[in-house]
Design a protein around this nucleic acid. Structure first.
Length: 311
DNA sequence: CGGGCCCTGGAT
DNA sequence: ATCCAGGGCCCG
């Protein structure tokens, strides 16, 4: 499931091969993927056809391209996307889609990595950007730009403070130099909700999903259901720095993958190391206790019952 | 602030 | 046949 590090890996893969290119056509293979586009498929086609991609930026888990018209003028809109939990943006060279080698009958049919291709942007150099998404939680749509409130760069890779409206309610993430960790920590401490639900609140701090929330809480030795207000400023800062470190480390190794659902633009998986996530039943690497999985907020929470005590 | 919804396909 | 995975968004 793509969270901040995985989306950043994708952004970095897209940057050198898509910035400067013109979209020649938009191929929609499954209309259900364009749910979030105002005006629907026609509007998406109209906004992109003949339009140049001038930058690719990211805030939290949102990714967007800046757009310019034939004269090089900003269109005032971005092409923004979110991968949901199973979305992939894949770059395809000029060659047509090549099927994988045919499997022998005993092996059954070979899995086709593009089986769930929903939408393709064809670029002027013959390359293509495929949006592949098994569960259709992801999407790609246009959104008008407006200045970010604090005037700082809108996100990683952004040339200025202009932020797509669709990401206006998304807080800065922990890899953003303009993120104010002390302010985030103060807000967390003003809430009585469980700390994990606060870590996952994208309007408070963005980019963290279920995997990195569990990993950060383990690193900071905090139980998922501890009320934000029960934690000291120092402890919350420790947690935020832990979350940042876990995500930085994941970024260095190309993202975290638990299945074939997260891949970079070339279709390759990242690492799959975690300390607690999906490790229930195995031993805590810090104290040797057995890692537990518990339902919280309708999601699985993985934690060490000894290191992460109730407060 | 919690719960339901959107979705599909692999596991049980 | 049913459960489960879950980010974002909408609802009450």
């Amino acid at each position: 499931m793509p969270e901040l590090p995985e989306v950043e890996v994708v952004r970095r893969g897209l940057e050198p091969r898509t910035v400067g290119r013109i979209v020649e056509s938009v191929e929609i293979l499954d209309a259900r993927i364009i749910r979030r586009q105002a005006g629907g498929a026609d509007r998406l086609r109209g906004a992109l056809t003949g339009t140049r991609l001038t930058a690719v930026a990211r805030r939290g888990k949102f990714l967007w391209w800046r757009l310019a018209d034939e004269d090089g003028q900003d269109t005032g809109e971005a092409l923004i996307g979110h991968l949901g939990m199973s979305g992939q943006l894949r770059l395809r060279d000029p060659a047509p889609i090549v099927a994988l080698p045919v499997a022998t009958p005993s092996e059954g049919p070979a899995p086709d990595p593009l089986r769930h291709r929903r939408l393709t942007l064809h670029l002027d150099d013959g390359a293509a950007i495929d949006l592949v998404d098994q569960r259709l939680f992801g999407g790609l749509w246009t959104s008008p730009l407006a200045p970010a409130r604090d005037g700082a760069l809108a996100g990683q890779g952004s040339p200025d403070s202009l932020l797509p409206a669709s990401a206006a309610g998304i807080a800065r993430d922990l890899l953003d130099p303009a993120a104010d960790l002390s302010a985030i920590a103060r807000t967390i401490r003003s809430r009585r909700a469980g700390i994990k639900s606060l870590l996952l609140a994208q309007d408070l701090v963005s980019g963290i999903g279920n995997i990195y929330a569990d990993e950060a809480l383990w690193a900071a030795r905090i139980r998922f259901d501890t009320p934000g207000a029960r934690l000291s400023q120092r402890k919350v800062l420790e947690l935020l720095r832990a979350a940042r470190e876990v995500m930085e480390r994941a970024l260095e190794v190309g993202g975290t993958s638990f299945d074939a659902l997260y891949v970079n633009v070339e279709g390759r998986s990242g690492s799959n190391h975690t300390d607690v996530y999906a490790r229930h039943g195995t031993l805590c690497s810090r104290c040797g206790a057995t890692i537990v999985r518990e339902k919280y907020m309708g999601r699985s929470s993985h934690f060490c019952p000894v290191c992460q005590q109730k407060r």
